[in-house]
Amino acid sequence: MKITSLEDLRKIKASATDQTSARSEGKTRIIIGLGTCGIAAGARAVMEAVLEELSKRGLKDVSVEGTGCIGMCQQEPLLDVIRPGEPRITYGRVTVQDVPRIVTEHLVNGRIVEDRLIGRAD
């Protein structure tokens, strides 16, 4: 395709930004516990559900990271959400079914999903 205006360039930029968005900083972060017990408890499925939900909703500005065991194995799968400038919110015993709720309520609307909340840290 030929670029014939700034508008064309912006369009390519918008779609290309998704390609590199995983490399930019200062975004909302979702951190999933991928230690042995996390994975045993279904953390991989939760991660896949997160990725699917983000792409379904077109949320590009979210980074999805994994982390090792943090010693709360009985609460796995663990999922943390950190919105820029807000405390780190930890959810426990997260299921695939909870994921759309967490994404819509917390990521989009900024409301904490109380029934899965197990911790908050600044």
Binding site: L6, L9, K13, A16, T20
Partner: peptide
């Protein structure tokens, strides 16, 4: 060290060719 030099879209994503457009 930040973009794939063989992919023009990654360059565009980092404001590439914006200056020329302007």
């Amino acid at each position: 060290g930040y973009i794939n030099p063989d992919n023009i879209e990654e360059y565009i994503a980092r404001d590439g060719y914006q200056a020329m457009g302007k």
